[in-house]
Design a protein around this nucleic acid. Structure first.
Lengths: 199, 199
DNA sequence: AACAATACGGAGACTGTCTCCGTTTAGCAA
DNA sequence: TTGCTAAACGGAGACAGTCTCCGTATTGTT
């Protein structure tokens, strides 16, 4: 399921008939407005406000997205497609370890731009939407290739790398928002790469 | 400033005369109740509720702690003394790198127990209360010793280690709360230790 | 005992969450 | 087209949490 089709047979819709036209319109618009709003005001942005700015009543918002997390998920689902596209070329790179490093840095940057909204995604491998799965799967491929080439230790798991990476994301994000410079994602990912490399 | 004395010339009090007896009593009681409440209900526990359970009006709570963060800080200030005590023996250990590793694991465990309340502390080196400073300073000593013994790379900074550690804390915390087992703190800290070790 | 200075506490304004239900609309079938 | 029904809308309003204002009470000092 890609973000584009998400609205049709939306979140866990029991694959019944497609959404009515007006419902779909509102769904789309809500996700759109929510994205702006979350980016501008953080993940606690007022939901009623989002509804208002999308030109619908609160009831409509809550019918489509019963909880804040559901809305957050939908917003992330769009965004994740963009990120995954970034990885495509890396999957064919000639130097797997370097490719992995580059991907992890990109991941941190992307998630960082997206504020704290997406950080949970790195950890959950199997949420409703493939949202998180896409990221997990991409990482998995890159890690397996790097293991195969002998550059990464075979005892390291995908989950571990994702945990460490989400940690870097969190640390960089927090550091920025409290005006503590801290080290760059490149540097921290570098240290992690050193830790998981064969030697 | 230790937690015990915190109430006397409390948060950034312009070192004027000490708190009045009733004020101090309420301050103490509030921190006490807040600790329970945050642990039980997370960092969004209702402040009015805390005030009520401490037997004071909301006004009193807000006079002592103008923002939620101020209260959170006060709660953490108590807790940090406990943690720091754990490090005392490690500072004299004969194997600095092992001691550092042990400390970092302890740190993750402690912060984890304390839910998400304290994770921000690892990153901020110079908050109002020494709260964060204590942790930072302790880590610094352990890291310097490990560098001096040649086991840790000299180019690694304290901040970097704290960033990575807070990341592990975050990752383990999130993983737990969304029922994703993930790897243990020991394992992840181990990978980080590998990354920052000389080879 | 009297008097500042300090602190208390609760009423209430305000903001955000979420639901209920009467009204409207889309889509289909005749 | 028209009429019908399931689907969807949206806003009033109940509720919960935040935070302030200010009249009242307490403390510690002379």
């Amino acid at each position: 399921m890609t973000a584009e089709t998400a609205a049709q047979d939306a979140p866990d819709r029991p694959s019944r008939r497609p959404m009515r036209a007006d419902a779909r319109r509102n769904y789309e618009r809500l996700v759109e407005v929510a994205t702006e709003s979350f980016l501008a005001n953080g993940p606690n942005a007022s939901l009623d406000e989002i509804a208002k700015r999308a030109g619908v009543g609160p009831g409509t918002l809550y019918r489509h997205f019963p909880t804040r997390d559901d809305l957050l998920d939908a917003v992330c689902a769009r965004w994740v497609d963009t990120v995954a596209a970034d990885a495509r070329p890396l999957l064919e790179a000639t130097e797997p370890a370097a490719a992995l490093r580059e991907w992890l840095v990109k991941l941190v940057d992307h998630v960082g731009e997206f504020k704290g909204l997406a950080s949970a995604l790195l950890l959950s491998g199997d949420r409703k939407h493939e949202t998180a799965g896409v990221l997990h799967h991409t990482s998995e491929e890159l890690i397996e290739r790097a293991k195969a080439s002998g550059e990464i230790r075979p005892d390291v798991t995908v989950t571990e790398v994702m945990q460490l990476t989400s940690g870097v994301t969190y640390a960089c994000g927090s550091a920025k928002q409290m005006n503590k410079p801290g080290s760059s994602p490149e540097r921290l990912i570098g240290l992690i790469m050193d830790g998981i490399s064969t030697r």
